[in-house]
C-alpha cells in the first residue's frame, strides 16, 4: 500500500535586505502555528547566516549540509524545539546547491520517516535577490516578503518582489516595526501601486499583516526567547496571531498525498526540479 502523508504547505519568508526581522517573525510565527496544533518545521535557509538555532535557543551541532554530504541522516539533524515544532538547521545555501546530486532526493526520501506529517514548513531564506534565495522562493507555495518602513528596506523589498514576480503572480507581505496599521496600509498601498504600474498589472500583492514597533520584541530576541511566549498579551503578539490565523485559513489539512510531496523531501524535490 502506498504510504500516505500530509500535504506540506511550504511558506518562504524572505526580505530584500537583512535586519528587518525576518528570522524573528519566522521563529515566532512557527511557534504560534505549532501552538495551534499544526505540525510545523522551520528550515533555516539563510545563506551563510543561518541563525535560527540561536533564536530558538537550541543546540544544532549538525545541519542540512551534513545530510547532503552523507555525514548524517536527516532525522539526526532535526532539532525538536517543542511539541509540534521542528527546526531543520541550515548552514550555507550555496553549499546546499553544490551538493545537490541526482541521488540526493532518493536518499532524503529514505530519511524522511517520521518527518512526513508536517503541515507547514517555513523556509527562512536569505535576504536579497540572489539566485539561491530565488530558488527557495520559486519552490514555495507562498512567499512572504518582510520589510520595515525604511527607504532602503522598502526599495530592496520591491526589488525582491520584482524578481520573484517573473515566475509568480501572488506575493504576500508583512510590514514590520510600523507605528500603526494605517502606516502599514499606506506603505503597502504605495508598493502595490508602483508594482502594478511597473511590474505587472495582474501581479497580486497581499498584505498579510503588520507588526507594530515594540521594544519587547528586541528584548525577547536578546534573551534568545520568543516574544509571543514572553509577552503573550503584547500588541505584536496579537498582530502575529492574526497573521497566523490568515495562514491557517489557507491550509487544507484534509488533503493527504504521497510522502514525496511532503516534508523536507518534498521541498528538495521542488528545488531539484529547478536545475
Amino acid at each position: 500500500m502506498t504510504p500516505r502523508a500530509k500535504k506540506t504547505r511550504f511558506i518562504a519568508v524572505t526580505s530584500g535586505k537583512g535586519g528587518v526581522g525576518k528570522s524573528t517573525i519566522s521563529s515566532n510565527l512557527a511557534l504560534l502555528l505549532s501552538l495551534s496544533g499544526l505540525k510545523v518545521a522551520v528550515f533555516d535557509a539563510d545563506i551563510g547566516l543561518a541563525n535560527l538555532d540561536v533564536m530558538f535557543n537550541v543546540s544544532a551541532p549538525r545541519n542540512i549540509l551534513h545530510v547532503l554530504k552523507g555525514e548524517a541522516r536527516l532525522d539526526e539533524i532535526v532539532v525538536p524545539v517543542r511539541d509540534n515544532l521542528l527546526l531543520i538547521p541550515g548552514e550555507s545555501g550555496e553549499e546546499i546547491f553544490r551538493y545537490a546530486q541526482p541521488g540526493m532526493f532518493e536518499r532524503l526520501m529514505r530519511d524522511t520517516v517520521g518527518l512526513d506529517d508536517i503541515d507547514v514548513m517555513l523556509i527562512d531564506t536569505g535576504a536579497g535577490i540572489g539566485e539561491q534565495t530565488q530558488r527557495f522562493l520559486q519552490s514555495a507555495d507562498d512567499v512572504i516578503v518582510v520589510t520595515v518602513p525604511d527607504p532602503a528596506a522598502i526599495t530592496d523589498a520591491y526589488a525582491t518582489i520584482k524578481v520573484t514576480a517573473r515566475r509568480r503572480k501572488t506575493i504576500k507581505m508583512i510590514l514590520n516595526q510600523v507605528h500603526s496599521a494605517k502606516e502599514a496600509r499606506n506603505i503597502f498601498a504605495k508598493i502595490e501601486q508602483v508594482a502594478k504600474l511597473h511590474i505587472a498589472p495582474d501581479l497580486r500583492l497581499e498584505l498579510l499583516g503588520e507588526l507594530t514597533r515594540d521594544e519587547k520584541v528586541a528584548y525577547a530576541v536578546k534573551r534568545r526567547s520568543s516574544f509571543v511566549r514572553d509577552f503573550p498579551r503584547s500588541r505584536p503578539t496579537k498582530e502575529l496571531q492574526i497573521i497566523a490565523q490568515n495562514i491557517m485559513a489557507e491550509i487544507d489539512r484534509s488533503v493527504r498525498v504521497n510522502p514525496n510531496e511532503s516534508g523536507i523531501a518534498g521541498l528538495f524535490k521542488r528545488l531539484m526540479e529547478q536545475f
Partner: peptide, 9 residues
C-alpha cells in the same frame, strides 16, 4: 521612476 515613486513615502 520606480525608486522615485517609492521614495514619495
Amino acid at each position: 521612476s520606480e525608486i522615485d515613486a517609492l521614495m514619495d513615502l
